[in-house]
Amino acid sequence: MELRHLISFLAIADELHFGRAAARLHLAQPSLSQHLQRLERSVGVELVSRNSHEVRLTPAGEAFREVGQDIVIRVQRAREAAVSAAAGRTGTIRVGYNFPAGQRVLPGTLARFNARHPGIGLDMVSMRTGPQLDALARGRLDVAMVYGRPAAAGMRSRLLLRVPLVAVVGLEHHWAGREDAAFVELAGEECILFRRTQSAAMYDAIFAAARASGIELNVAEEVDDPGATAIVAAVKPVVGFASAVRGRFGAAGRGGPRTTSVRLYAPVPILDLNAVWNADHRPLVGALLDCLPAPDPLQT
Score class of each variant (00 low, 15 high):
Met1Ile: 15
Ser8Gln: 06
Ile12Arg: 07
Ala13His: 09
Asp14Ala: 12
Glu15Ala: 13
Glu15Leu: 04
Phe18Val: 08
Phe18Leu: 11
Arg38Trp: 04
Val43Leu: 08
Leu47Lys: 05
Val55Lys: 11
Thr58Ile: 10
Glu62Pro: 08
Ala63Ser: 15
Arg65Asp: 09
Glu66Trp: 10
Val67Asp: 10
Gly68Phe: 01
Gln69Val: 10
Asp70Trp: 09
Val72Trp: 04
Ala81Tyr: 07
Ala86Asp: 12
Leu106Val: 14
Gly108Leu: 05
His117Leu: 04
Val125Pro: 00
Gly130Asp: 03
Pro131Thr: 00
Tyr147Glu: 12
Met155Asn: 06
Arg156Tyr: 00
Arg158Ala: 14
Leu161Pro: 14
Arg162Pro: 03
Val166Tyr: 04
Glu172Asp: 15
His173Val: 11
Ala176Asn: 08
Ala181Pro: 13
Thr197Phe: 10
Ala201Thr: 05
Ala201Tyr: 09
Met202Arg: 11
Asp204Trp: 01
Ile206Tyr: 01
Ile206Lys: 01
Phe207Tyr: 09
Arg211Ser: 02
Ala212Gln: 12
Glu216Asn: 13
Leu217Ile: 02
Asn218Asp: 11
Glu221Met: 13
Asp225Ser: 05
Pro226His: 02
Ile231Met: 04
Val232Arg: 15
Lys236Gly: 01
Arg246Ser: 13
Pro257Met: 13
Arg258Ser: 02
Ser261Gln: 07
Val268Thr: 10
Ile270Ser: 06
Arg282Glu: 09
Gly286Asn: 09
Gly286Leu: 00
Asp296Met: 05
